[in-house]
C-alpha cells in the first residue's frame, strides 16, 4: 500500500500573537513547526503502514528552504521518502494553486497513491481547502475532519472505518475503501516522539527539491485572486447573554426559563413522500421561515 502525506510548516498556535489594538500579527515571534493536524495525518499514515506490514509513506511539502524542517520531522517519525516542492513565486499562491501543484506532483508518479492524508486545516489561515481541492484535482473521493480511524482487512481488501467530525458535536461514521483522500483533525492521535537514531538520520538527510512549474500536469490559474483578506483580529467570545425572564410568568415558569436559558428544544420534523413532494415541502418551509 502506498500512502502520501501532504505537510505544511505553519506557526505554532501558541506562538501567534495578535496586537489587540492594531490587529497586527507579530510574525517575528512565530515559531514555525509541522502543522499539528498534519503531524496527526502523518502518524495515521505510519500506523496504517505498520498495521498492514507492507507499503510506504511518502511525505510531501510545498515551501521554502526553512520548511525542510517538517520533512526531517516526517523522516524521523518514519516516512520512507520525502520531497519538497518550491518555486519563489509560490510564496503568493493560494490554497487552490497549492493543491494543483501537489496534484501535479502525485500524478507525476506512474500511479496515484492508494491513500492520501492531509491535515484538515493549518494553524495559520485554517482555510481547510487544500485537502478537498487536491481530492477534486485527482478525482478521488474524500473524507474530511477525520477524528477516528480503524483499518481492517475485508476479503483481502483494506476497509477503513472512519469517524468524521461534524458541526455542533455531531459525528458521522463511514466505511471507505481506497483510493481515497482523508483530511485529519488534530485530535485524531498523538504523534510519536522519534528515537535518537531516527532523529539523527533525519537531521543529516539530503532532501530532494522539485520545481512545481516544471511538472507537466501542473495547471493553475495564476491570475485568479483566490483569497481576499478583509480583516485580521483576535477572536472575541460572543458576550454571554443572561436571560431576564418575563415577570408576568409564575415563579415556576421563571425558574424554568432561567435554567434552560430561555431555549426550547430544537424542533425537527421528518417528512416522507416522493421526491417532488419533498421538494415542495422544503421550498414551503424555506419560504415560511423567510429564507427565500
Amino acid at each position: 500500500m502506498r500512502i502520501a502525506v501532504c505537510l505544511k510548516q505553519a506557526p505554532d498556535c501558541s506562538s501567534v500573537y495578535v496586537d489587540p489594538v492594531s490587529g497586527e500579527v507579530d510574525t517575528e515571534r512565530f515559531v514555525q513547526t509541522l502543522n499539528a493536524a498534519d503531524a496527526c495525518a502523518l502518524e495515521a499514515a505510519l500506523r496504517l503502514k505498520e498495521q498492514s506490514g507492507t507499503g510506504s509513506v511518502f511525505a510531501l511539502t510545498l515551501g521554502p528552504g526553512e520548511s525542510e524542517e517538517v520533512l526531517r520531522v516526517a523522516l524521523a517519525m518514519g516516512a520512507d521518502t520525502i520531497e519538497r516542492l518550491w518555486h519563489p513565486s509560490a510564496a503568493d499562491w493560494g490554497p487552490l494553486t497549492i493543491a494543483a501543484a501537489l496534484a501535479a506532483r502525485l500524478r507525476a508518479d506512474p500511479s496515484l497513491p492508494d491513500l492520501i492524508f492531509c491535515g484538515e486545516q493549518s494553524s495559520d489561515w485554517a482555510s481547510g481547502t487544500v485537502g478537498p481541492a487536491l481530492a477534486a484535482y485527482l478525482g478521488l473521493p474524500q473524507i474530511t475532519g477525520v477524528i477516528g480511524l480503524e483499518a481492517q482487512q475485508d476479503s483481502g481488501q483494506l476497509l477503513l472505518r472512519v469517524t468524521r467530525r461534524l458541526e455542533r458535536g455531531y459525528r458521522e461514521r463511514l466505511l471507505a475503501r481506497p483510493p481515497l483522500l482523508l483530511t485529519v483533525h488534530e485530535t485524531l492521535n498523538e504523534p510519536r516522539y522519534p528515537s535518537l537514531p531516527a532523529h539523527l538520520a533525519a537531521l543529516q538527510a539530503m532532501i530532494t527539491v522539485r520545481d512545481p512549474l516544471s511538472l507537466p500536469q501542473f495547471a493553475a490559474d495564476f491570475e485568479a485572486e483566490e483569497t481576499t483578506i478583509v480583516e485580521v483580529r483576535t477572536p472575541r467570545p460572543r458576550p454571554h447573554r443572561l436571560l431576564i425572564p418575563d415577570s408576568q410568568l409564575s415563579p415556576f415558569e421563571r425558574i424554568g426559563a432561567i435554567i434552560t436559558g430561555g431555549t426550547s428544544r430544537r424542533q425537527a420534523r421528518l417528512v416522507e413522500g416522493s421526491p417532488e413532494e419533498l421538494a415542495h415541502e422544503l421550498v414551503r418551509f424555506l419560504k415560511e421561515r423567510g429564507f427565500v
Partner: peptide
C-alpha cells in the same frame, strides 16, 4: 544518554 528511544551517544 538522551531522553529518546535508543538515546545513547
Amino acid at each position: 544518554q538522551c531522553r529518546r528511544d535508543d538515546g545513547a551517544l
